[in-house]
């Protein structure tokens, strides 16, 4: 614990998260990952949107931006592209990243810019009081789905893979020990890295869905997920019942800032007449 305290703005505590919320478990895993990699605090930027999880930027002692709703990735793209030497993190929730910020999400994946994004997926809009989000499961309840949610949910990690992210991993706060490694691998990946983490919301999601006890929500995570190696062996019908966890994609792919630097070098050669366009 003492090692990670240096990365915290301790005067900003207590935090705003409810008892039983998974966000603190995710933040702790993130700080352990930073600590294990011994990153220079002055060369780290953390960018977030709006929502419960996006308040995380206020608690970590880096250069931090708490941006507008859904726009964290677009701000972070500006930070990273302007100063590629910085290590840039993005904290976001399921609504922030895949509803209002969905367009930025798929394009950051496609562009493969070297950002590490952590999505705290709690299946609900917590801060505004429990409205259904793009990951609220079918027929689960929310304040705006009082008779059950008629929509189908997003598979966020699947979306990232399809959109071209070079590293995608999924974890749960139930299996917190695994998170450090998933985040470290994401930081080490040169390209866009997404770590989607199921983080329970007992206060809002749980209460609406007879899962108000945080332990019940943890057990729900356990029942819902399966390590990807085991999941891969299932037939399609069985696969549909579970969400695979672990590293789902880890591929080498040209990174945006690097590729842009190459095109600048090319442009300068053309301007000097050393290369014909």
């Amino acid at each position: 614990m003492s090692n990670i305290e240096r990365y915290l703005r301790k005067d900003k505590f207590p935090h705003i998260w409810c008892p039983g919320c998974g966000n603190g478990i995710v933040l702790h895993a993130f700080l352990r990952a930073i600590d294990k990699l011994n990153l220079d605090q002055n060369q780290v930027a953390a960018v977030s949107g709006i929502g419960c999880s996006s308040r995380a930027t206020g608690y970590v002692d880096f250069c931090t931006i708490h941006t507008t709703h859904g726009r964290a990735l677009a701000f972070a793209t500006g930070v990273k592209f302007a100063k590629p030497e910085l290590t840039v993190f993005v904290f976001s929730g399921d609504g922030d990243s895949t509803a209002i910020g969905g367009n930025h999400f798929i394009h950051a994946c496609r562009r493969n810019i070297d950002l590490t994004m952590i999505i705290f997926n709690n299946n609900i809009y917590g801060m505004t009081g429990g409205q259904y989000s793009p990951t609220t499961p079918y027929m689960k309840y929310a304040s705006t789905a009082p008779y059950g949610n008629a929509e189908q949910p997003f598979n966020i990690s699947g979306l990232a893979v399809a959109a071209g992210a070079s590293y995608v991993a999924r974890g749960t706060t139930y299996d917190a020990a695994q998170l450090d490694n998933l985040i470290i691998k994401g930081i080490e990946n040169k390209g866009f890295s997404l770590i989607e983490i199921f983080a329970p919301c007992p206060t809002v999601y749980g209460r609406k869905n007879k899962l108000a006890n945080p332990v019940d929500l943890m057990m729900w995570q356990k029942e819902l997920t399966m390590p990807v190696a085991k999941w891969n062996q299932l037939d399609d019908e069985e696969k549909a019942k579970y969400q695979p966890t672990g590293i789902l994609t880890d591929i080498d792919k040209p990174e945006f800032c690097d590729e842009y630097a190459k095109t600048c070098a090319k442009a300068q050669k053309i301007a000097k007449g050393e290369l014909i366009s």
């Binding site: 930027a45 960018v47 250069c63 931006i65 941006t67 507008t68 726009r71 677009a74 701000f75 972070a76 793209t77 500006g78 930070v79 990273k80 592209f81 302007a82 100063k83 910085l86 930025h104």
Partner: peptide, 9 residues
């Protein structure tokens, strides 16, 4: 949003 991030940088 990107130009604001760049400006902060």
């Amino acid at each position: 949003a990107a130009i604001l991030g760049a400006s902060l940088s």
